[in-house]
Design a protein around this nucleic acid. Structure first.
Lengths: 212, 212
DNA sequence: ACGGTAACCAACCAACCAGTTGGATGTCAA
DNA sequence: TTGACATCCAACTGGTTGGTTGGTTACCGT
């Protein structure tokens, strides 16, 4: 067997350190902007180890992305019965993990769809399908395209404030960055989704107005 | 006066060529990934002109961003009376101008808010304020934070499919890329917004279901 | 003790790339 | 025509960067 396979396996440790350092670096600067030296330094590991373990900067990026997606998948429950709560959960998760959001953005820009497919493609497809199925079941409908569109929109609404934090601040003011502002925004989204999906917007403003 | 000041002013022409080439390059690769040589070559102009006219790669990027924002501002009307139609218009605009969306994404990632402020900051603030005022007036409300949140969310919904085209394809399938799929998505968004804002979701599924 | 695997390290390299320079070219005012 | 001025451009530069190499040390199962 390979040496050092026990709990303190230094191989796994360096790999993990590298991966975490890489996540920080890539989240901050993207693939093109990231510096291999900086990653190695931050991980406290020699640069050469990156190539030994991952092959190239690009492949390291792919690995980081995959691990990030696993984290998202593990952390957030399926839409299930209540789409509004799903948005609420997603919103909180992304708000507290801005690096993950940035990572996904860099990836979206780096792999401009079309020809080259993303790392972990079929895994993503499965994930999205199960989301759609979950929401369809919760709503008592068949999992068709329109439900899929719904899932897509809900995810977008939850992620958007973390995707464009500056725009949020410009639009709703400085308080967007405060915990209270965050909470208000989440409530706004929840009300919006609830009104759209359950059609219980009595005065026609429930999604717009807060609770003054 | 300066030489060549007439209509065919070659200075203005090279500047314009440079700006367009830069927009394409930056949209494709971002600030870090963009290559100054490539921009100059695509513009059919010597690299040095970039520094003569704009000072640096970064400043060129800023200029590109500013011109892009002017284009957005000029192309899309204010929310006004009908938020759903606003989303519809925005959606169409962004769908037909994916480069602009990418540009804004690169910028959002490049200027991670906080300390350094974005190019054309106050212009943006004004723009967002007038959007909020327009929507508030259309809804017969005062332009407060909750209306601002609404504006922010609407913009997000309209932009989201262009921000994450791959996710759209993964979630709703290949048809997301077709004109029909685009249209269906737009209608879904319109129905969603209408239901949320006007509270006329009769069966509770109007935002979810299409019109089968 | 031994053999295999991996971590470590320092120097190295070739390509790349943002930014510069110095002179050639063209245009206008006089 | 001439002088002044700005644009244009090919060649250059120097620092950076992804990736490599060769040799040494540490660990572990057998």
């Amino acid at each position: 067997m390979s040496p050092r396979k026990d709990a303190k396996d230094p191989t796994a440790a360096t790999k993990a350190a590298l991966l975490e350092a890489a996540r920080t670096e890539f989240a901050a600067y993207g693939v093109a902007g990231a510096r291999v030296d900086r990653i190695a330094e931050r991980a406290g590991v020699n640069k050469e180890r990156i190539y030994g373990h991952f092959g190239s900067k690009e492949k390291l990026f792919d690995t980081v992305i995959k691990s990030a997606m696993d984290e998202v998948a593990a952390a957030v429950a399926l839409p299930g019965k209540d789409p509004a709560e799903y948005v609420s959960n997603l919103f909180d998760f992304y708000s507290t993990h801005p690096d993950l959001v940035r990572l996904l953005m860099w990836e979206a820009l780096h792999y401009r769809g079309e020809d080259d497919l993303l790392p972990g493609q079929e895994l993503r497809v499965d994930k999205c399908r199960s989301k759609t199925e979950s929401l369809a079941e919760g709503l008592g409908r068949e999992p068709d395209v329109s439900v899929a569109r719904m899932v897509f929109t809900l995810v977008g609404m939850a992620m958007w404030p973390s995707v464009m934090p500056q725009l949020a601040r410009i639009t709703v003011g400085e308080e967007a960055a405060t915990p209270e502002g965050r909470e208000a925004l989440r409530e706004h989204l929840v009300a919006f989704v609830r009104a759209a999906v359950e059609g219980r917007a009595g005065d026609g403003l429930s999604a717009v107005g807060g609770r003054p």
